[in-house]
Simulated scan of single mutants.
Amino acid sequence: MSAEEKKTRQMPKGGRKGGTIFPRIALQDAVGYARRLVSKTHTSRQPRDVIYSGVVGAKAGIGDVRISALKQYGFLDGDAKSGYTADELAKKIVAAPPEELPHLYGQAVLKPTVFKRLFDTFQSDTVTRAKLKQRAADLKVHPDETDTCVELYVASLATAGLVSVDGDRITHLASADMSETAAISVVTDENNQSLSNNSTVNSPATRIDAGSDTEAAASDIGEEDKNGFPVPPGNSAQPAPRANFNVNVTLDSSMDIEKLQKQLELLKRFGAI
Rank of each mutant, 00 (worst) to 15 (best):
V94H: 01
E99H: 08
P102M: 00
G106H: 04
A108S: 12
P102W: 02
I62N: 11
D77G: 01
K71Q: 15
E100L: 01
F75V: 02
D64V: 04
F115T: 12
S82F: 10
T113A: 14
E100N: 05
T85P: 00
D77S: 09
K116I: 06
G106L: 02
D87A: 15
K111I: 14
D87Q: 10
A108Y: 02
Q107V: 06
V94C: 00
G63R: 13
Y105N: 05
Q72A: 07
P102G: 03
G78L: 12
P97H: 05
V114Q: 05
G61D: 11
P112N: 09
G106M: 02
G106S: 13
K111C: 01
G61I: 05
T113S: 11
L89E: 08
P98R: 04
G74N: 07
G61K: 08
A60P: 10
P98N: 06
V109A: 03
A60W: 07
Q72D: 14
I62R: 14
L101C: 04
A108V: 04
D64S: 14
V65Q: 13
I67C: 12
R117W: 02
K81L: 13
G78F: 10
E88H: 06
Y84M: 11
K111M: 09
A96W: 00
E88G: 06
S82C: 08
V94K: 05
K81V: 15
G61F: 03
Y105H: 08
A60S: 14
K71V: 15
T113E: 15
L110N: 00
D87Y: 07
K81D: 13
R117Q: 15
P112I: 15
D87M: 06
K111Q: 14
H103S: 12
P98H: 01
S82I: 15
P97Y: 01
P112D: 08
G83R: 04
E88L: 10
S68T: 14
I67A: 12
G61E: 10
A69H: 08
L101I: 15
V109F: 00
K111T: 14
D64K: 05
F75C: 02
A108T: 07
P98Q: 06
V114P: 01
A90Y: 02
T85D: 09
Q72P: 05
Y84V: 12
A96L: 00
F115Q: 08
H103T: 09
G61H: 07
K81Y: 09
R117N: 14
D77Y: 03
P112A: 11
A95P: 03
G74C: 09
A69W: 03
I62A: 12
K71C: 12
G78C: 12
A86F: 03
I93C: 03
R66C: 07
L76C: 12
G78W: 07
V94L: 00
L110E: 03
P98D: 12
A60D: 13
Y105I: 11
I62S: 12
V109C: 02
A69L: 06
G74P: 10
V65H: 10
D87L: 07
H103M: 08
K91D: 07
D64A: 11
T85G: 10
R66N: 10
I67Y: 03
S82L: 14
K92D: 02
L110G: 02
P97L: 01
I93G: 03
